[in-house]
Design a binder for these strands. Structure first.
Length: 417
DNA sequence: ATGTAC
């Protein structure tokens, strides 16, 4: 059965909803992950499931999966890191002074954002309007407010439910990266494959791009704890979706503040040094068209890739990220992988790599980039060796026509503070 | 992934 799952083109597995596995040559997939995907396809209301080439085992449910349901929504298929995603902003800056940049990055990420702003107003702005909301909050740095004013409003359903349940202190985490695979990064455009699309983003070879990969931090965990592991229907489902909308907007605001901090350290906050950018959420559930009807599309570690939509597949500090252009292909449920995907569990990576590398080696990547991280365990847990190779993942997405390549970004400095 | 407890 595992062998059948790993065939290419995609295989369909009996029992439960049809599953499409987006795999290809040299894409490693752990058997446990495909078993988890098969289990997901048997959940209440499930009509389709897709495994992306970064599929790997999660807690109960796999990461790198897209699950379509009718009527029922499963909060567990979004996970505790609800609203997590990636944000990029393109600059015209080409040069940095490494030591000065390190100092500036530390200063940015170690400073408190909220000192001068009213906490309740800050939380409400992020929950209600995401990054755009920060433009209206008094007391925030001018550069951040100007960056926020450039943001379009979110087109998803408006937040509802009870934000009062969650607003105790979460504004404190706005602008923080978090742990695990989250990072803030300055990277360089080193390979442009689609010049027209790249030009639309203002993206030119050698230019520096800031990348923020983070989520709603403790807020998503609180949401998951409140709603629990059961399927939701009717008004309960709608209340959850309203609160998820708030958490997703909060996560978007968080990534914008992280991007602001990177741009600030880089000295790229002026109008003439800023180009385009975009933000994608890869842990989410939303209503989308499917087979002529509407379905709830759950994404857990899968980035939306609608026809003509920009998206990003995140590399590691030892591998490039790829900006891609979606096709909206039904086979992938309008999605792509969110990254290379883990090859080793965190505990396994720590145990194996501690003996393989010195600590001075893990703070530097094979691509010449630097890592700013004070957590020794995290340096090993998130080492590039703990991840699959990115190139076969991108090649599989292209071969299955889920997206096309726009440009590759090579990490220069990765911040995990 | 996270905040907190062990």
């Amino acid at each position: 059965m595992t062998r059948a799952l790993l065939t290419n083109p995609p295989a369909t597995v009996a029992a439960g909803a049809p599953i499409t596995l987006i795999s290809g040559p040299d894409v490693w997939m752990e058997g446990d992950a495909t078993l988890q995907l098969a289990a997901v396809a048997r959940l209440a209301g499930c009509v389709r499931a897709a495994g992306m080439p970064d599929l790997h085992p999660g807690r109960g449910y796999p990461i790198g999966a897209v699950v379509a349901t009718r009527d029922v929504v499963h909060p567990q298929l979004v996970g505790g890191d609800a609203g997590c995603g990636a944000r990029i902003i393109v600059t015209t800056v080409e040069r940095t002074t490494p030591d000065q940049l390190d100092r500036r990055l530390r200063a940015q990420f170690e400073a408190a954002l909220v000192d001068a702003a009213d906490p309740a107003a800050l939380f409400a702005a992020a929950w209600q309007r995401g990054g755009r909301g920060l433009a209206e909050v008094d007391g925030l740095p001018d550069g951040l407010r100007q960056l926020a004013a450039r943001e379009p409003d979110d087109d998803r359903l408006p937040p509802s439910g009870d934000p009062g349940r969650y607003q105790a202190g979460f504004e404190q985490v706005l602008g923080t990266v978090g742990g695990g695979n989250h990072f803030a990064e300055i990277s360089r455009v080193d390979d442009v494959r689609d010049t027209a699309t790249a030009a639309g983003l203002g993206l030119a070879r050698h230019a520096l791009v800031v990348v923020a990969h983070s989520g709603s931090r403790g807020l998503g965990t609180a949401l998951g704890a409140h709603w629990g592991p059961r399927p939701l229907r009717g008004t309960e489902r709608d209340d959850y979706l309203g609160e998820l909308a708030g958490a997703c907007r909060f996560a978007h605001a968080n990534r914008l503040v992280v991007a602001y901090r990177l741009l600030s350290a880089l000295g790229a906050l002026r109008d003439h040094t800023l180009r385009g950018g975009f933000d994608v959420t890869h842990n989410d559930v939303r209503a989308e068209r499917l087979d002529g009807g509407e379905a709830w599309i759950h994404r857990k570690g899968a980035a939306p890739a609608p026809a003509g939509g920009l998206t990003i597949v995140l590399g590691s500090r030892g591998a490039s990220s790829w900006i891609m252009l979606g096709t909206g292909a039904a086979a992938g449920l309008g999605s792509v992988a969110h990254g290379a995907g883990r090859k080793m569990k965190r505990s396994e990576a720590l145990a194996k790599l501690k003996d393989r590398y010195r600590r001075s080696e893990v703070a530097r990547s094979t691509l010449g980039g630097r890592v700013i991280c004070d957590d020794k365990a995290l340096l090993f847990e998130e080492h590039p060796d703990a991840y699959k190779a990115i190139e076969p993942v991108i090649a599989a997405l292209v071969a299955h026509r889920l997206a096309t390549r726009v440009a590759a970004l090579t990490p220069i400095v990765t911040v995990k503070l």
